[in-house]
Nucleic acid binder design. Structure first.
Lengths: 172, 172
DNA sequence: GCGAATATCTTGCTGAGCGAGATAATAAGG
DNA sequence: CCTTATTATCTCGCTCAGCAAGATATTCGC
């Protein structure tokens, strides 16, 4: 975000500013997780993407992972090398297409993430339990609206445009 | 966050998951801003911190900036060098303490940030205008609660502990 | 089966960030 | 006022994440 010295600090902008503060704070929390386990921010993002895929029951190939994270193939290979060396991930040849290499998170990595982020998730869920349906709907709609707005701002080409899974970024 | 394959996908966890998605999406939006202007994620974080300080009316020395971002002195010097070279920041000798070097954002950088993030901020504020006081309070309290929980999780030493302005990280 | 397309890996390089130490300015003592 | 310790920043050399280009292996169309 940024909110650079807004002239009118209305009640809405205060909340937007608060959301930005939350983003910063959660980013720092992820950084602590990374440092605690000798990982880099990108490694954490990769693990999150892999866990999301696992929960959704879909395979995450090395190439798709790179697309999600915005890395090229060389960087993605190095990333999976790091995660594999640390024992957080294992490489499995694609069942249907044997050119592909599917990255699967190890249960130990899932346990690591749960142990670190679990308390924060539980605390957040607990906060929400204190609200009625009317309020929950507001929170959900606001978050979903912001997410959609940010995603659309990326799709509707603001100049730079392509970042979403460019499969190497326009190889001529 | 991470929410690694929770066993009970209650209505609260869905919102927590949504918050994580928002964090990811806003991170990608910042990354687009960075790439659009030939900057790195750290540079964007630094500009945000500098604009926050400017709005709060306080000086941000090079050392304090490094502490906020979790960089050591060498990395911070290189960071400010980059920002200065790009014309986003200028170095000013500290008025009271002439050992310090205060980094000030140029107006052009503020304009850049406003132009890019302004629409998203405006859209978010617009969403909030559709809610009543009861709902606004829920959104505000939830965000503030999550922010506080994440910040406390960092302070109450989860093993790694010190990350918040460690002034070089405990030099023995 | 042969060539094009796809998916990953290898090689060499650029640059962000770290550790150690140099330099400059302030603060505390005598 | 001069010396010594402390604080703040900068310089140097290094490591490693990520990029570009090309090599290798597998699949698909004809």
């Amino acid at each position: 975000m940024s909110t650079p010295s807004g002239p009118a600090p209305g009640p809405e902008l205060e909340i937007v500013h608060l959301l930005r503060a939350v983003v910063v704070e959660l980013g720092l929390h992820s950084a602590r997780f990374a440092q605690l386990h000798g990982m880099h921010p990108t490694d954490v993002r990769a693990l999150i993407a892999l866990m999301d895929a696992r929960r959704a029951g879909e395979e995450m190939s090395v190439g798709r992972l790179g697309g999600v994270l915005g890395l090229n193939s060389a960087g993605t290979t190095a990333l999976v090398d790091r995660l594999e060396r640390a024992g957080h991930v294992r490489r499995v040849r694609g069942a249907g297409d044997r050119r592909k290499v599917v990255a699967e998170v190890e249960d130990s990595a899932v346990a690591l993430g749960r142990a670190f982020f679990g308390p924060l998730i539980e605390r957040s869920a607990e906060l929400l339990r204190g609200y009625d349906a009317h309020q929950l709907a507001a929170v959900r709609d606001f978050l979903d609206g912001v997410r959609t707005a940010a995603a659309e701002a990326g799709d509707t080409a603001p100049g730079g445009g392509s970042q979403r899974d460019p499969r190497h970024r326009t190889p001529r």
